[in-house]
Simulated assay, not measured.
Amino acid sequence: MTETPRQPTPIAIVGVGKIARDQHIPAIAADPRFELAATVSRSGGVDGVENHASVEALLEARPDVEALSLCMPPIPRFNAARAAIAAGRHVMLEKPPGATVAEVLTLDRMSRDANVTLFATWHSRHAAAAGPARDWLAEKRLTGIRVDWKEDVRKWHPGQDWIWRAGGLGVFDPGINALSLLTAICPVPLHLTSATLSVPENRATPIAADLEFSDGEDLTAMAAFDWRQKGGEIWQIEVETDAGTLSLTEGGARMFVDGTERGLEDPGEYPDLYRRFGDLLADGASDVDPLPLIHVADAFMLGRHLTVEPFED
């Protein structure tokens, strides 16, 4: 008997900003398992797609929309996700999955109780080198880790004031990408031991951060995040092992072992996120890992605050 092909899952995007337009909308359009059925946006939404003023309005008007992809900033995301889960809809969370760790754990519990899929995404874990790097490191003894994640905030977050308010994460907004990639490839668990957070005197969140991690034994990992980078982005992780040095560059798009580049297949981070979401929906499963956010929370708990010059956009 020939199986009837499943109809695409109607999905709505909540928060139609730069990341939604640059990444989510093209990824949905390219995936036959999804159909962009609606949006929630106060900025006009997407041409040719039904738009709603609030999540609640969407949920009431469109019971056929099975899944929501939440792309708004982290602070309002919890209430939107909670409403969607309570209405029996599946939810995909842009990173970070919440403003606090407790929010993420609460949503995880709610989704399980409601028997709906919750996918807390970390797009850097879907970089081309993430899987190959994890496999290469699996049987190695790690002797040192260095992370450098530096970019120009004016280029990547122009005029976005929310990132500088409490809960906006500051430089950890990109820095959490590094932490999500590191925790995906590292074969041993790490915990934060110290942090220095450089906070502009006119802002509430850091513009730079220096972190140190340990595995509790003899492995040390150092990370430097900075939003004052000029002359091109630096998104790289270097891992020294007893069998050579692994280097990931360009946010995990490229991989080198002892300076020699390895060839990689690259479907694209966001297309692969929606592939994973489709698989979770088909399996009736969820994927919620708060560890990168826990590391950020630890940095704010342990971090020594250093006041630096004001930042003006």
Score class of each variant (00 low, 15 high):
residue 166 A to C: 04
residue 9 T to L: 02
residue 245 T to S: 05
residue 251 G to I: 05
residue 2 T to V: 01
residue 198 S to P: 05
residue 152 D to N: 14
residue 82 R to M: 02
residue 78 F to A: 12
residue 279 D to M: 08
residue 286 S to A: 13
residue 35 E to I: 06
residue 9 T to W: 01
residue 197 L to F: 12
residue 39 T to C: 07
residue 175 G to I: 08
residue 146 R to V: 15
residue 94 E to C: 12
residue 166 A to T: 12
residue 204 A to G: 07
residue 92 M to D: 08
residue 141 R to I: 00
residue 240 E to K: 05
residue 293 L to A: 12
residue 301 M to Y: 15
residue 82 R to P: 06
residue 217 E to S: 05
residue 221 A to D: 04
residue 117 T to Q: 14
residue 8 P to F: 02
residue 201 E to F: 02
residue 163 I to M: 11
residue 223 A to R: 01
residue 133 A to W: 10
residue 108 D to R: 13
residue 231 G to C: 11
residue 67 A to G: 11
residue 72 M to E: 09
residue 67 A to L: 15
residue 242 D to E: 08
residue 70 L to T: 14
residue 141 R to N: 01
residue 183 T to A: 10
residue 31 D to P: 01
residue 61 A to P: 01
residue 109 R to L: 11
residue 253 A to G: 08
residue 224 A to K: 15
residue 90 H to R: 00
residue 173 D to A: 13
residue 19 I to G: 04
residue 101 V to N: 05
residue 23 Q to G: 09
residue 124 S to K: 09
residue 308 V to K: 10
residue 115 N to I: 03
residue 248 L to Q: 13
residue 121 T to N: 15
residue 200 P to L: 15
residue 74 P to D: 14
residue 89 R to T: 14
residue 278 G to S: 11
residue 296 V to C: 11
residue 234 I to S: 01
residue 52 H to S: 04
residue 62 R to L: 04
residue 123 H to F: 12
residue 127 A to H: 03
residue 178 A to D: 08
residue 208 A to C: 13
residue 47 D to V: 01
residue 186 C to A: 09
residue 169 L to E: 09
residue 72 M to L: 12
residue 156 W to H: 13
residue 65 V to K: 04
residue 208 A to Y: 11
residue 108 D to K: 10
residue 26 P to H: 04
residue 95 K to P: 14
residue 235 W to Q: 15
residue 54 S to D: 01
residue 229 Q to A: 05
residue 231 G to R: 13
residue 169 L to I: 06
residue 265 E to Q: 14
residue 156 W to T: 10
residue 148 D to S: 06
residue 116 V to F: 02
residue 73 P to A: 08
residue 294 I to K: 09
residue 97 P to T: 13
residue 227 W to L: 09
residue 307 T to D: 05
residue 26 P to Q: 03
residue 172 F to E: 07
residue 312 E to S: 00
residue 197 L to P: 05
residue 177 N to S: 14
residue 284 G to K: 07
residue 228 R to N: 06
residue 5 P to H: 02
residue 69 S to G: 06
residue 6 R to C: 09
residue 295 H to T: 04
residue 26 P to V: 04
residue 86 A to E: 15
residue 300 F to P: 03
residue 155 K to T: 11
residue 61 A to F: 00
residue 156 W to I: 03
residue 288 V to D: 11
residue 288 V to R: 03
residue 299 A to R: 12
residue 189 P to M: 07
residue 114 A to I: 02
residue 17 G to H: 03
residue 268 G to Q: 02
residue 68 L to A: 14
residue 59 L to I: 08
residue 123 H to M: 11
residue 120 A to C: 14
residue 117 T to L: 14
residue 253 A to K: 10
residue 263 G to L: 06
residue 68 L to T: 15
residue 259 G to D: 00
residue 236 Q to P: 00
residue 205 T to L: 14
residue 257 V to S: 11
residue 32 P to K: 05
residue 273 L to C: 13
residue 225 F to Y: 15
residue 296 V to H: 09
residue 274 Y to K: 13
residue 149 W to H: 11
residue 237 I to M: 11
residue 129 A to I: 14
residue 110 M to P: 00
residue 271 P to Q: 02
residue 245 T to P: 00
residue 36 L to Q: 04
residue 73 P to F: 07
residue 37 A to H: 08
residue 252 G to K: 05
residue 264 L to G: 10
residue 308 V to F: 10
residue 208 A to E: 13
residue 187 P to A: 13
residue 242 D to Q: 06
residue 218 D to G: 10
residue 100 T to D: 09
residue 57 A to K: 00
residue 105 L to H: 09
residue 100 T to H: 08
residue 7 Q to A: 15
